[in-house]
């Protein structure tokens, strides 16, 4: 589902002495099926931006179009709910939103709010629990008897069960250990590919942005600062450093290597494997041991 944002401005606490410009004239197109990473440090407007995409915040100026739905300043409430059905959002620490007696009921909460029948919602709950890698037995358990990592998966299943076309992830791996982080991110990438979703990932990790996204948006002080494919963005190290960000580790390493050899290294993929491959090219064939 295509997303188009034009001239979006948001003022917090408009009309009071505490008024603050959180977003300023943001325009952006995200074509259907894109995996977009939004980076920028705390307070750059990332969270404000994504909350507009499912109607949790209303624009002060400008419009947001998701598919054939357009939200403008002063839009109607009914429209907001329709928007929320299309756009699912996994907040930071999503396990903090669990509330129901059983995992099954909790996962069914979303679909039923959007008018699904009980059977359909239950079917969705079963499907999604398996999808996030949990055994179906947990469905009858209380979510509060699960481990932290399992709770997070349940919460994610609860958002997926609404079958959104667009999935927004607000630092979905915050607080997890490295292994848990990788499992969750791999899950989202697989979902994205299999279900043909549009995915928007808000992250502080340049590595995640580099490995998982096809496009990157850099926010700074409520405006779009840079936008493009990862290779384009990470070729601009100075611009990134100017706003307190940096390139991923792999790029940092390639840059160091480049400095030594004096030869530019081609950078289009940022996985560790591809970095190793690029460097090994400098070593000729056959391999070396010393």
């Amino acid at each position: 589902m295509d997303i188009k944002i034009s001239g979006l401005t948001h003022r917090y606490k408009a009309g009071t002495p505490f008024e603050r410009l959180a977003l300023h004239d943001v325009s952006l197109s995200i074509s259907s099926g894109t995996f977009l990473a939004v980076i920028g440090h705390t307070g750059s407007g990332k969270s404000t931006l994504i909350q507009h995409l499912n109607g949790l915040l209303k624009p002060s100026e400008g419009t947001i179009t998701v598919g054939d739905l357009t939200i403008a300043a002063g839009g109607k409430k009914k429209q907001l709910k329709a928007l929320r059905k299309r756009v699912g959002i996994v907040f930071q620490y999503p396990e903090h939103q669990l509330f129901d007696e059983t995992v099954e009921k909790d996962v069914m909460f979303g679909p039923m709010n959007f008018g699904q029948s009980e059977e359909a919602a239950r079917a969705a709950a079963h499907e999604m629990i398996k999808l996030v890698g949990l055994p179906v037995e947990v469905l009858q358990k209380s979510p509060f008897d699960l481990s932290g990592g399992q709770m997070r998966r349940v919460a994610i299943a609860g958002v997926l069960a609404m079958e959104p076309d667009v999935l927004i992830l607000d630092e979905p791996t915050a607080g997890l250990d490295p292994r848990g982080r990788k499992e969750i991110m791999d899950l989202f990438r697989t979902l994205h590919d299999q279900r043909n979703m549009t995915t928007i990932l808000v992250t502080h990790s340049m590595e995640d942005a580099a490995y998982y996204a096809d496009r990157i948006l850099v926010m700074e002080k409520g405006s779009t600062y840079l936008e493009g494919a990862p290779a384009e963005i990470f070729a601009k190290r100075e611009e990134l450093q100017a706003v307190g960000l940096d390139v991923p580790e792999t790029v940092q390493f390639l840059l160091r290597w480049q400095e030594k050899t004096g030869k530019p290294v081609q950078m289009s993929s940022f996985t560790i494997e591809d970095t190793a491959k690029a460097i090994s090219a400098d070593f000729g064939k056959g391999g070396f041991t010393c």
Partner: peptide, 22 residues
């Protein structure tokens, strides 16, 4: 159950591509 630091991971990947460090 731990991950490896970046330089170690890269070192191992390099070995797979025939660049073997001691």
């Amino acid at each position: 159950g731990l991950d490896l630091p970046f330089s170690l991971k890269l070192g191992l990947a390099l070995r797979d591509y025939g660049v073997s460090l001691k």
